[in-house]
Design a protein around this nucleic acid. Structure first.
Lengths: 142, 142
DNA sequence: GATGAAACCTAACCTTT
DNA sequence: AAAGGTTAGGTTTCATC
C-alpha cells in the first residue's frame, strides 16, 4: 500500500468498472502495471471486492435500527464480535464510549426479520439487554 | 425494475467487474441485453455507480461516532436532511423512534475532523444538543 | 439477438532499478 | 529480485442492424 495503490483505489472507488488503461493514465502507470497492482491487492485482501451502489429507495423496503448493547459483567470485544458475526442483519458494530458496551446498526427486509435478528443478539449469553431506535425516515446514505 | 434487473444487480453486487456475458449466463440473457439493462439502470439512477470494497483496517485510521440529535421544537425531516447533507462526514442518518429526533453515523479521518464536523451539526439553527458515542473498536463492517 | 470494429484484458517476455 | 513497460492473442464491449 503505497501512494500509487491509494490512487488506484481512489479511482476504483469512483468507478469500479473503469478500464485499467484509464486508471493507469491517472496514476501514471501502464494498464498491465495497474492490473498487477489490483490483482495483488485483491489477493492480499486489501480489496475485498467490487460492488454496485444502488438507489436505496429501490432496494426494497428495508428497515433499519440503531441498537445499543448492554452486557453482563465484562465482555471482550472478540466475544461480542463472535456473537454479532452470526447475525447477517448486523451491518455495522463497534464498542463505544458512553453507557452502552456496543452500538450495532442493523438492516433487515421487514419488521419481522429485524425482530428475529434482534432476538438472536439479545439471547446471546453475555448480553444483558438492548435499547433500539428504529429508523423512521432515511435522511442520508453515503 | 423486474426480476431480471434484480438478478443483474445481485450479480453486480457480488462482482461489479463481471463481464456482461458472464452476468447474462446467470440471468438467461445475451451480453448485449444485459448491457442495455445496466445502461438503462445507470441512466435511471437505479444504479448510482460502481465501487470497491476495501479492508477497513487499510483505509487509514478512521474514527467513527454514533450521534443522537436532539432538536428544539419540531423539525421536519427535510430540514434535518438539509443540515446533514452539508457535512460530508455524515455517512448514515435517519429520524428514529425513541428520545432522540435523529441518529447520525459519522466517519472522519481523525479526531479533529470529527470534532469539526460535529460542531457544524451542533451549530445548526434547529439543533438543541447532541449525544455522541465514539466507536472504540470496530467489530463488524459489511 | 446477432454482427463486426474498436477497445480492453491478460499473460508472457523484456527492460530497468 | 522486484516493479514497470511492451507486445500480441483472445475476449469483451458497444453501436448498429
Amino acid at each position: 500500500m503505497d501512494p500509487v495503490d491509494a490512487g488506484i483505489i481512489e479511482r476504483l472507488r469512483a468507478n469500479a468498472r473503469a478500464g485499467y488503461g484509464d486508471i493507469g493514465e491517472q496514476v501514471g502507470l501502464s494498464a498491465s502495471a495497474v492490473k498487477r497492482r489490483v490483482d495483488r491487492m485483491v489477493a492480499d485482501g486489501v480489496i475485498r471486492g467490487f460492488t454496485v451502489r444502488v438507489d436505496p429507495r429501490i432496494e426494497g423496503s428495508v428497515i433499519e435500527a440503531h441498537v445499543e448493547l448492554f452486557c453482563r459483567g465484562t465482555v471482550s470485544p472478540r466475544a461480542l464480535q463472535r456473537i454479532l458475526e452470526g447475525v447477517p442483519e448486523v451491518v455495522e458494530a463497534g464498542t463505544v464510549t458512553g453507557e452502552a458496551d456496543a452500538i450495532v446498526f442493523m438492516r433487515a427486509r421487514d419488521v419481522g426479520a429485524l425482530e428475529e435478528a434482534l432476538e438472536r443478539v439479545r439471547t446471546a449469553a453475555s448480553v444483558d439487554h438492548t435499547r433500539s431506535a428504529i429508523v423512521l425516515s432515511k435522511l442520508i446514505t453515503r
